[in-house]
Structure formats: structure tokens, C-alpha cells
């Protein structure tokens, strides 16, 4: 049986994430009540796991790290069809950079046990680093392919996948167990179903805190993070727009004239 672990993240809803801003006076982040949702690319990761489960004998475990409310997105993955869920949640995990996040997730994966394939979205909409997948692979000492956009050959010990590249792709051959980070082009994620939500009632989410995970406090969260945010700054722009007003006809006329005068069209 193919043992798949899908790593997912609860991120501020991208539709509302712009509400979180740096306060120009205090240089701190403004508190905004933005709901947490399943990271968009992680849906592609789930979809790959589900497609594999449809074609192979596979078991899907969902793993996330985050505040207790992130249990909702784990539940959502269970409703989509994952078999079991784990949430790593502890105050000590807070403030983690990509390195500490990858380390904590890797510890979680070690505790879950054997796996053949770890799948995650290539980046999160809030962090946008693309680091967690490959760093996790490095901690677990398994190979990784990032930005996977097509599964060419699967099922055996060696898989063939395509990964997106500037103006092209690379064809990779990879031996399981391995980590894949996936891109949006890979598939179209399915939507939640009512019976999936009902089936998820019987599926368990296991919560692990610092002690249960069995890691030292200084290796996780902010303390375990090599990088820190040293300052926040607002930006003063060098330009201020001259707003061209009038009727639509006037505005078009004026704009074209200005561009012609500047000799840029």
C-alpha cells in the first residue's frame, strides 16, 4: 500500500489578506480579523493524493502545523477523502520560519511512521518561500522534486514526473520515498462533497503538542528559527500620480496625448 502524507497549511484567506498591513506609526502589523483557509496550492497536493488513491492501493494522512483552529482545514482534507489527520499545535511552535516549520513537520512525519510519498503545495500564499517541502526532504533524508506539474509514470519504485521550469520543464526520475511539491498546473482540485463531510465524522484528528511530539523547545517555533524579522517599514513612493479626470472621452484623449508627448508610444 502506498502511504501518502499531504502537508497542508492554514493561511489567511487570500481574498482578505490585504487587510493585514504594517501600521505606519507603530511599525507593527495591524490586527485584522481574516479567516484562515486551506492554502490554494495544498488543494492541488490533496488532489494528487486522491487521484493516486483512486488508482492505487493508497492511504492518505494529512499533516498540518498551526493554531488549534487549523484543525478545520485538516477536517476539510478528511472530508475531501484523506484517511486520517494530524495537527501539530503548541504555543512553542509559533513564530516559526520555514526552517523550523520544516523541522517540526519532519519530526511529525517521523512520529507518524513510514511513508512512501509526501506531497505539499509548492508554496503558501502567505509565505511564498517554497522552502518547506525541500527542507523537510533534507531533514528526512529523502529526495525531492519541486514544482511538479505532471506525473508521467507512477506506481513502481521509480516514478517519472515533470517539473515546471522557466519556459519549459525538466523530466525527473525519482525513487520513493520522496517529497513532491506541486504547482497549480498539475490538476484541478475537486470540491467538497456532502457525503465526504459525513464520512469525515468518523475520521480522527490527532493533536500533538511539544511534549507529545518529543522535541526540544529551542528547536521549534521562533526559538528554533535561524531567521527573524528585524524590522518592518512602510515605503514612501517616489511618484505621485497626476489623476487625469473628465469624461471618459476626455481622459482617453489626455492620456494618449501625455504618452505621445513623453514619446513612449
Amino acid at each position: 500500500m502506498l502511504k501518502i502524507i499531504v502537508c497542508v497549511k492554514a493561511v489567511p484567506d487570500p481574498k482578505e489578506a490585504h487587510k493585514i498591513k504594517i501600521d505606519p506609526a507603530t511599525k507593527t502589523l495591524t490586527r485584522a480579523d481574516v479567516p484562515l483557509v486551506l492554502n490554494l496550492l495544498d488543494k492541488n497536493a490533496m488532489e494528487l493524493a486522491l487521484l493516486l488513491k483512486e488508482q492505487l492501493d493508497a492511504h492518505i494522512t494529512v499533516l498540518s502545523m498551526g493554531p488549534p483552529v487549523a484543525g478545520n482545514i485538516v477536517k476539510e482534507c478528511l472530508a475531501l477523502g484523506a484517511n486520517q489527520g494530524f495537527l501539530l499545535s503548541d504555543r512553542a511552535f509559533g513564530g516559526a520560519d520555514a526552517y523550523a516549520t520544516a523541522y517540526t513537520l519532519a519530526k511529525g512525519i517521523e512520529k507518524i511512521g513510514e511513508f512512501d510519498l509526501i506531497i505539499c503545495g509548492m508554496a503558501s500564499s502567505d509565505g511564498s518561500t517554497e522552502w518547506v517541502g525541500p527542507e523537510m526532504a533534507a531533514f528526512l533524508k529523502v529526495p525531492v522534486v519541486t514544482r511538479v506539474n505532471e506525473i508521467v509514470e507512477f506506481g513502481g519504485e521509480w516514478w517519472k514526473v515533470k517539473a515546471s521550469l522557466e519556459n519549459g520543464y525538466r523530466l525527473m526520475q525519482v525513487k520513493l520515498p520522496a517529497v513532491f511539491t506541486v504547482s497549480r498546473e498539475l490538476n484541478t482540485p475537486r470540491t467538497l462533497s456532502f457525503s465526504g463531510i459525513i464520512k469525515a465524522r468518523k475520521k480522527e484528528i490527532t493533536l500533538w503538542d511539544l511534549n507529545e511530539l518529543g522535541v526540544l523547545e529551542e528547536t521549534v517555533g521562533q526559538k528554533g528559527s535561524p531567521t527573524i524579522v528585524s524590522s518592518l517599514a512602510t515605503v514612501n513612493s517616489k511618484r505621485i500620480a497626476e489623476i487625469i479626470s473628465g469624461t471618459r472621452e476626455d481622459k482617453v484623449e489626455q492620456l494618449v496625448q501625455k504618452l505621445a508627448d513623453a514619446a513612449v508610444i
Binding site: D97, A98, Y99, A102, G127, S128, T129, E130, W131, G133, P134, E135, A137, A138, F139, V144, T146, R147, A163, S164, L165, E166, R170, S225, P226, T227
Partner: peptide, 23 residues
């Protein structure tokens, strides 16, 4: 920050036990 760099940098950073800042 190429496709290669974006894969290679975190692999190297994790192995060296150091931080990495993106883009």
C-alpha cells in the same frame, strides 16, 4: 530565484542548518 535555485537553496540551507530568505 530560478527554478533550480529555488530547489537547491533550501536543500543546501537545511543541510547547513541555516536560514534562507526568499526573493
Amino acid at each position: 530565484s530560478t527554478s533550480m535555485g529555488t530547489e537547491l537553496a533550501p536543500l543546501v540551507a537545511a543541510r547547513l542548518g541555516t536560514g534562507l530568505t526568499a526573493h
